[in-house]
Amino acid sequence: MEEDNITETLRTENLEIDLLITAIKGKIGYDLTGYARASIKRRIQQLVIDENVNCISDLIPKLLYSRQCQSNFINRLTINVSELFRHPISLLRLRESVLPYLESFPRRDIWIAGCATGEEAYSMAILLEEAGLLNNTQIHATDINTEVLKQAKTGILTKGLNKEDAARYQASGGTSSLSKYFSTAYNKQKLSQNLLDHISFSHHNIIQDQVFCSAQLVMCRNVMIYFDLKTQNRALTLFNNSLVQNGYLVIGEKESLVNSPLSSLLTTIDEPAKIYQRKSSEHV
């Protein structure tokens, strides 16, 4: 008896999640169907508790009729966690193996897919500045969430610079003082304007949209972990198609190409650093 109830509850919850996802897609245009189910379910269940409602489907009228709930739901259901110089070992290898390659191009395009509040793009601008490559480089930073993009565009850090940021910067091979790239006013730190000028922030949805730009380097870290396998493969195909021949792809520390058919199109440059290179067409 108990077990039947549990099975029935699971079925009902799954139906409610499907309905909520349909409502979000219809009302706001965000397609969450390709998200990994277990984690989106837990985020939805936490929203049920925080909104003080009885069940998942009670979230639907709130979503449909309250603008404030719409942006709150999106911020809670999509993840916008980032930090400066995340996975520094990867950035160290990037300085050593990838930046010299970028130097061979007169003009360079770099795509940061899923930039959240901007830290990933800011870090990239600093790396390029230190390698003397920032001029003639355009960093295209994109995200699905227009609110975080607004924040990212300001160049202002959501959290003040701290010791951990400085330590990661040094671990990535940085030898200056990280604070020299930021100005401080009213206790907030803002990326120097000459660095910020090289970053464009745009709306782009990895799940629904087409290739954003042609790039020598695509970086997408800790975004694909939220997708199911099918959607991960779609994203990887998109990234591969946007890369020039011999262009580089960098993914997150705990992400992998192992389960992807795309792995045959990419050469592993450094597995722990999660750096891969698109094969030139004669090798495919």
């Binding site: 990994a36 189910r37 277990a38 984690s39 993840i79 966690v81 800790n222 972990i225 705990k254």
Partner: peptide, 20 residues
Amino acid sequence: APSGYHLYVENKHHFSLSVD
């Protein structure tokens, strides 16, 4: 489970990670 990530059992076949 790696440090710094939540670990989900996605289904009978595989795990998934998150930084929720």
